[in-house]
Amino acid sequence: MSTAHVPVLLERVLALFEPALSDRPAVLVDATLGLGGHADALLSAHPALTLVGLDRDPNALARSGERLARHGDRVHLVHAVYDELPSVLADLGHRATGSVDGVLMDLGVSSMQLDVAERGFAYSRDAPLDMRMDPTAELTAAEVLNTYPAADLARVLRDYGEERFARRIADAVVAARAKEPFTRSGRLVELLYDAVPAASRRTGGHPAKRTFQALRIEVNGELAALGRAMPAALAALRVGGRIVVESYHSLEDRLVKRSLAELAKSRTPPGVPVELPGHGPQLRLLTRGAEQADEQEREHNSRAASVRLRAAERIQEAAA
């Protein structure tokens, strides 16, 4: 395993889950299993733990399955996107509400997907414009670039990539695809170098970074799925259960922050002098804002550079 495959903030994740999982039979859902680094450590730390591992990438499931095989029947792996959590739990005999002790989400593209050039996630290497986390899905980055109208393409780049020059890039893509459809990432990177002003290239990082992020999010429907997955994950927690989410860009972190904050506040109407029964906070926030990796971890694990970790504990049953 390369340093890119080291689980991010592993010791912090273990510490946050410890009170919910220790010394008792417990169930944890790793909703983004990847290569199983966090899952392996959690299973090793808690001999009575049962793990449900989800991933949309069948290649990741196969590799993590090998890694976790030593834990035997305590591991249940499912090919699914994290917003399918309620149906996955139902299929395994668990209730969708109040039945699990922990949920872990390590969002974004996995190190394994970045490392395989043919998947097209990395702008540093010329590859087919694919970007599907699930290779069995239909939509690819090439299809987005070659078929979306300029206005829709600009919306994707602006909303998901926070790209200042979204319309300029979209118009350049539409003009270029009229001559020849896009098939490989190298040609797109060349276009982006030309479309993004030189002053922005000098100060704003690699000109392809934001566009590649936006295309990946669009192809995989990441934010829409996360928007459905967060309420489902929070509802699945029993009282005392904990959720830990690691995000890698501001759009994900913003959505996670809102989801946790909404359930961490009282629903008693303003002006009522006492807390109404059943209207108190459902969650207790376990982190002050978003936690980051320390300098040492960032130096040894490049994926930790942009991580933002948030965690919460369920303190009241989910509202009916």
Rank of each mutant, 00 (worst) to 15 (best):
59 N>Y: 04
59 N>T: 05
59 N>S: 03
60 A>W: 00
63 R>V: 02
64 S>W: 07
65 G>L: 10
69 A>W: 13
71 H>D: 04
72 G>S: 09
73 D>N: 08
75 V>I: 09
76 H>Q: 15
77 L>F: 10
77 L>P: 07
77 L>M: 14
79 H>D: 03
79 H>S: 03
80 A>K: 11
82 Y>M: 13
82 Y>E: 03
83 D>N: 14
83 D>P: 08
85 L>D: 04
85 L>K: 09
86 P>K: 14
86 P>I: 13
86 P>R: 14
88 V>T: 05
88 V>H: 04
89 L>Q: 11
90 A>H: 14
91 D>I: 00
92 L>G: 08
93 G>M: 12
95 R>L: 07
96 A>S: 15
99 S>E: 12
100 V>W: 10
101 D>H: 15
102 G>C: 06
103 V>C: 06
103 V>E: 05
104 L>C: 13
105 M>D: 13
109 V>T: 14
111 S>T: 10
112 M>H: 10
113 Q>N: 08
113 Q>W: 11
115 D>H: 10
116 V>K: 05
117 A>Q: 03
118 E>S: 11
120 G>E: 05
121 F>R: 12
123 Y>A: 07
123 Y>L: 10
124 S>F: 09
124 S>L: 15
125 R>E: 06
126 D>K: 14
127 A>Q: 07
128 P>N: 11
128 P>M: 05
129 L>V: 13
130 D>G: 04
130 D>M: 06
131 M>V: 07
132 R>C: 02
134 D>Y: 02
134 D>P: 00
137 A>N: 02
138 E>F: 00
139 L>Q: 02
139 L>G: 00
141 A>W: 02
142 A>N: 09
143 E>M: 03
